[in-house]
Write a protein that binds this DNA or RNA. Structure first.
Lengths: 199, 199
DNA sequence: GTCTATATGCGGATAGAC
DNA sequence: GTCTATCCGCATATAGAC
């Protein structure tokens, strides 16, 4: 018989998630979260650097998954395809079955500027991780960073649509759509060095 | 004779800039900044919402300039070109002659995670402002957001290179280069609906 | 628990504009 | 004289360091 209930981190995340949804981020204290999880405030701060961090636990696993996928991907694909395929694989594993949870998490973040700042920091960290993974495959650092940024643009566009009520398609498909949208936006410039198929 | 020395805001910004460069952001107190500017701590917080904000004053002018340029731009151009031209115009006005200052400011920010968070927030706000300006020209909101994100990707790529010691070309030119790089990155996908000029 | 620093609320002072 | 912009003083909530 275990000395404590298992998965303290998970219980703290769940408790925080509930309380933030019920009464908002600012009006929730760390003491409340710990109490609902059956733990102490001290234990909370052992697991999370600050109150915000409890909402961003999934992020690091997502990042690791993506970096793994990029490293494993075939050498012949163009870099942006490598990134989008990695995003699709990670989405299947970690997002696809949690649309409701992801949506509610997004609502909590959208309601609080502090949390938005942290979210942006995480996205920036993910961009740098992706760029590093691309650089490890031989891409020059500048192009790697640009490609990673483009990939995250695709990801954000897809997730934004995926978390809308009217949308029911899988995230994998919306990622493909978003990539195509980015290509369209980027291709429609006066600086044409490429012409349409048909003359 | 005026009751106070003029331009309290400017003096506070200059004092903060110096002190952050001399001894870092964290090791500088608001009291020190105010003292060097010949003002009090309370006055500092009358002008700036928090300590970080004193470094981000130029940003709002930059944003206004860009939004103005987008609104004034010819209707016939593709959206991403509209954004990049607006960035070029605003860069000529506000950045080109301050490369050293911009570089030092960037170094201060790069040395502090708190300031990076704020920088990312400002960039996100700029993306939304650009998207709103594009939407006002008739572009649908989703494409507007994607185009604005792509534009800021171009801006970041160009500024990153512009603030490197070895680089001496004008920012306007680096923006054109970065746009071309983004087009290249986005076009090199397996999902080809466009073919190269030459067969 | 004390100390320092950030940040906010409220009141009030004074020079110059009207 | 009134109004506004600019600035100052005091009290205080909060958070982290020690």
């Amino acid at each position: 018989m275990p000395r404590w209930e298992p998965d303290g981190v998970g219980r703290l995340q769940a408790a925080a998630f509930e309380l933030f949804a019920e009464q908002g981020f600012e009006r929730t204290t760390v003491a409340e979260i710990a109490q609902r999880a059956g733990l102490t405030q001290r234990t909370f701060f052992n697991h999370f650097a600050d109150k915000r961090e409890v909402l961003f636990g999934l992020g690091s696993e997502f990042q690791e998954e993506i970096v793994r996928e990029i490293a494993a991907c075939a050498d012949t694909l163009p870099p942006l395809d490598v990134v989008v395929r990695a995003l699709q694989a990670a989405s299947d594993t970690m997002f696809e079955e949690r649309r409701a949870a992801v949506t509610r998490r997004q609502e909590i973040i959208d309601a609080n500027p502090e949390l938005q700042e942290r979210e942006l920091s995480k996205q920036a960290a993910l961009i740098h991780a992706i760029a590093a993974a691309l650089h490890a495959r031989g891409l020059d650092p500048e192009t790697a960073l640009l490609t990673a940024g483009a990939g995250m643009l695709v990801q954000q566009t897809a997730v934004r649509r995926w978390t809308q009520p009217a949308e029911s398609r899988p995230l994998r498909e919306l990622l493909s759509d978003a990539l195509h949208s980015l290509r369209t936006v980027a291709t429609q410039t006066t600086d044409q060095r490429v012409v349409p198929l048909e003359t």
